[in-house]
Computed example of a mutant assay.
Amino acid sequence: MKTSHLYLPIVAATISAIGQVMLKYAMVRVGRLHLSFGMIGHALVEPIFVCAIAIYVLALLIWMQVLSTTPLNIAYSILAVTYVLVPVFSYFAFGEQMTPGQMAGVALILVGVAFIGKL
């Protein structure tokens, strides 16, 4: 398998995970979301929220490149690495703890992604 078939999905997943952490940080600052124009307006003036959306757009553009060059069954499976990155990033960004069961799940996901990457 070409290295690019592995590289780009992992890049897209990493950028998406960073966007997810930034979005969480922004929503902590904005507060509980009540779907109203005022609350949405409040979120839109939060710089971290705007950066998170920009990062999602970047991840989408990279994902579009992935889809144009990589078999979907491989690319989408590799995208599961976000389930590993988000908990790790959350630990460092927010001090969120992981249970042993969650850590085992993360390890299983990594093993699965590694198997898919070897195909």
Rank of each mutant, 00 (worst) to 15 (best):
L58H: 02
G105K: 02
Y76L: 10
L79D: 11
M1H: 09
A43F: 06
T14Q: 04
P9G: 06
T14G: 12
L72H: 09
Q65K: 14
V21S: 02
V11D: 01
G31K: 05
P47R: 00
P9F: 01
H42Y: 12
Y91I: 08
F94H: 08
I74Q: 13
A26H: 04
V57M: 13
I40G: 07
V57Q: 07
M1A: 11
I53L: 12
A104L: 14
I40C: 11
I74G: 02
T70W: 03
P87Q: 02
V30E: 01
M22A: 13
Y76D: 07
H34L: 13
F92R: 06
M39C: 13
A26I: 02
S36C: 09
G41H: 09
G41K: 09
Q20E: 14
G31S: 03
V21H: 02
L44V: 13
A104R: 04
M22R: 05
G19Y: 05
M98E: 08
L110N: 07
Q20D: 12
T70S: 13
G95M: 07
A43M: 12
F94C: 09
V45F: 07
L23C: 06
R32T: 15
S4A: 14
F115L: 15
P47N: 06
L58I: 12
V113L: 04
M1D: 05
S68I: 04
N73Y: 12
K2D: 15
Y83N: 11
Q20N: 15
T82Q: 13
H42I: 10
P100H: 06
I109A: 03
A93N: 03
V84S: 00
M27T: 08
G105M: 01
V86P: 02
I15E: 00
Q20C: 10
M98L: 15
V111I: 15
L33S: 08
M98T: 10
E46A: 03
I40E: 06
V84L: 09
I62P: 05
V50L: 14
A17V: 06
I10H: 12
F89H: 04
G41A: 11
F94R: 08
E96H: 07
L23R: 03
A54N: 07
Q65V: 15
L61W: 09
S16Y: 12
F89Y: 12
G105N: 05
I74A: 04
Q102C: 08
I55L: 12
N73H: 14
I53T: 05
F89K: 02
V57T: 11
L23M: 15
G112N: 04
G95R: 10
G112L: 01
M98D: 01
A80V: 03
S16K: 04
I53G: 03
